[in-house]
Nucleic acid binder design. Structure first.
Length: 276
DNA sequence: GTCTATGTTTGCGG
DNA sequence: TCCGCAAACATAGA
């Protein structure tokens, strides 16, 4: 579920919440498989008494650096969220891991589908080492994108979703970027013209920046939506051009948006703007 | 009630 | 290398 803009929104809110340097006084694991490294039973002992020195994002991972060394990494996968609540709050259904802080706040991993994972590691590269560049970072340039695409025979959409090529794109923002650049998701990556690669490069950065500016995309109506740590919803769902807009007119040419499946993922396109 | 889709990643077999 | 599929799960929506 959370892609780069949603994860960045969470990290921004965690930063504002001033959790840095607040000692961890308790840790409880209610769903063992949420802890992906070591034994879940040893998890509390490894974090209690420690505190975070910084909180950051890499791809779709949230990173917590411990003062004194070591990292706690979190991937929210499909349905994971973080809740920051006061310690007195009754534990809600699906809150599977709880970190308690000395100032009576608790950070809780809420994850109905239980795919989210916490990693406790000495070396973050163990988990993040294979990720591609940050699409909003300095190493992600149009030249890099052109080089990557020119050697690949895969379809452009599954390639953009590959975290080892670019870190952080997911289904929503790939559909939006391809529409913005006027590229069909089934184009062979190496077949894009130089102009199309440049357009795609700009589109990727544009849709991600817009997603962050809007504090993420919160789809649907129920409590399953994306929201940040204080349950604040994002507003980017009001600015989508094709994603889940099936049947609605294309904002550029009014052709109805169509839904298809590409690489087993629901895909939304304007067949007029994104011809094959 | 039943069926299907779901924003992610990994690992398998071909 | 690449692709398709299944699995890890629960819930919303048709």
């Amino acid at each position: 579920m959370p892609e780069l803009p949603e994860v960045q929104t969470i990290v921004n809110d965690l930063t504002k919440a001033r959790l840095i340097n607040v000692p961890i006084t308790g840790a409880h694991v209610f769903w063992q498989r949420s802890i992906a490294t070591g034994s879940p039973r040893s998890f509390p002992g490894q974090v209690i008494g420690r505190n975070f020195g910084s909180i950051w994002r890499r791809g779709k991972y949230i990173g917590f650096d411990f003062n004194g060394g070591g990292h706690l990494l979190l991937h929210l996968r499909m349905s994971g969220r973080l809740h920051l609540v006061s310690a007195g709050m009754r534990r809600a259904k699906h809150e599977h891991v709880v970190l308690s802080f000395q100032d009576d706040r608790e950070l809780r991993l809420y994850d109905p589908r239980k795919f989210g994972r916490l990693y406790l590691v000495k070396d973050a590269d163990l988990i993040l080492g294979r990720l591609g560049p940050e699409p909003l970072g300095r190493t992600f340039t149009a030249v890099y994108l052109k080089k990557i695409l020119s050697s690949r025979k895969r379809l452009i959409k599954p390639l953009l979703l590959d975290q080892n090529v670019i870190a952080g794109l997911g289904n929503i923002y790939v559909d939006e970027a391809l529409w913005d650049a006027g590229i069909h998701p089934c184009r062979i990556a190496s077949s894009l013209s130089s102009d199309q690669v440049h357009g795609l490069y700009r589109a990727i950065r544009k849709v991600l920046k817009q997603g962050i500016a809007n504090a993420g995309t919160s789809l649907g109506t129920g409590k399953g939506n994306f929201h940040s740590i204080t349950r604040q919803m994002g507003s980017n769902q009001n600015h989508l051009h094709v994603y889940r807009q099936t049947g609605l007119p294309c904002p550029r040419c009014k052709t109805p948006i169509e839904r298809l499946v590409v690489g087993q993922r629901g895909t939304h396109i304007c067949i007029n703007c994104q011809s094959l």
